[in-house]
């Protein structure tokens, strides 16, 4: 069919190419619309089901009566703790990796190979990271199922995206700025540190936050490495906490849903909404950073 059409245009006097382009554009718009609708329906349903559960008490108190009542305070705290540590570990490592990819061995085969590997890692399913974390951090390094092992696993999980966004952001730094710095006698390192990185920082931070948002919502990396399900208290935080598992939102959802009849449905919906809002807040943060930075650089 397509072949026939390709031969027709001249004689028929119809601009088939334009028609095909129009059809594709329409399809694309239709798909975009459908996707948006789907997302909004999802959000609407979760908000509708979960909103009535949300209260200060729900957000700040631990579960009671064998998980069948009370709040999700420890899960929220656990998720925030996991995020914080992952942020602190993954940001410098990821930026370092991105800098190495962007700066060293331009065009070399090694660089291309590294880039492809990182891109492949970015597409690796979360469960693989979970199992890797179990094998290496939990068992080999004997961190046990713990906050520490969770940080390490989530850091690995977030790294590829941060590395790739850093590399891409550094590529957007105008040549004029780099040449300007070098012509002033700045070393390659100073040019990178004083000029290129600040210029690329909004893009890098956007990548960091988006990748954290992804990590915040995944149950699989923390499944075997950091999670407990039954958390009826707020254990005080100390250095010991590093070696102890934490409750967290995605795992609570996964397990709570898997064991029907224990956690009542409205609590699940409430936790679901909480997690979505958390991730949304991270994304909004990324957008705010980007727009403010754009304004700063005019």
């Amino acid at each position: 069919m397509a072949v026939k059409l390709a031969h027709k245009p001249a004689e028929a006097g119809v601009d088939w190419e334009a028609l095909v382009a129009r059809r594709d554009a329409l399809r694309l718009r239709k798909n975009a619309l459908l996707t948006t609708l789907l997302v909004f329906t999802l959000l609407a349903v979760i908000t509708y089901k979960g909103a009535s559960t949300i209260s200060w008490e729900f957000l700040t108190t631990p579960p009671r009566e064998g998980m069948s009542a009370g709040g999700i305070g420890p899960m929220i705290r656990g998720s925030l703790l996991l995020m914080l540590g992952t942020f602190l570990l993954a940001t410098p490592l990821g930026i370092f990796g991105g800098v190495c990819l962007a700066e060293y061995g331009d065009r070399s085969r090694i660089r291309r190979f590294m880039h492809a590997s990182v891109a492949a890692l970015a597409g690796t399913p979360p469960i693989v990271y979970g199992l890797f974390g179990l094998a290496i951090f939990v068992l080999k390094f004997q961190f046990g199922v713990s906050l520490l092992a969770g940080w390490c696993t989530l850091t690995l999980f977030s790294l590829p995206v941060i590395v790739l966004t850093t590399e891409a952001a550094l590529k957007t730094v105008p040549e004029g700025i780099i040449n300007g710095g070098l012509a002033l006698g700045l070393s390659r390192w100073q040019t990178l540190w004083r000029l290129a990185l600040p210029y690329a920082m909004p893009g890098i931070m956007t990548g960091v936050i988006l990748s954290l948002g992804r990590a915040a919502g995944e149950a699989m990396p923390v499944l075997f490495t950091a999670s407990i399900y039954y958390a009826s208290t707020f254990p005080a935080l100390s250095w010991e906490s590093l070696r102890q598992p934490v409750a967290n939102l995605p795992y609570y959802l996964a397990e709570g849903y898997r064991q029907p009849g224990v956690v009542p449905e409205h609590l699940i919906w409430g936790a679901c909404l909480t997690l979505i809002v958390l991730v949304l807040l991270l994304n909004v943060g990324a957008i705010v950073i980007r727009t403010r930075a754009r304004r700063r650089y005019l």
């Binding site: 004029g176 040449n179 300007g180 012509a183 700063r296 650089y297």
Partner: peptide
Amino acid sequence: GMVFQKPNPFP
């Protein structure tokens, strides 16, 4: 020192 064809102030 060098100045370029297109002004390139730093942001």
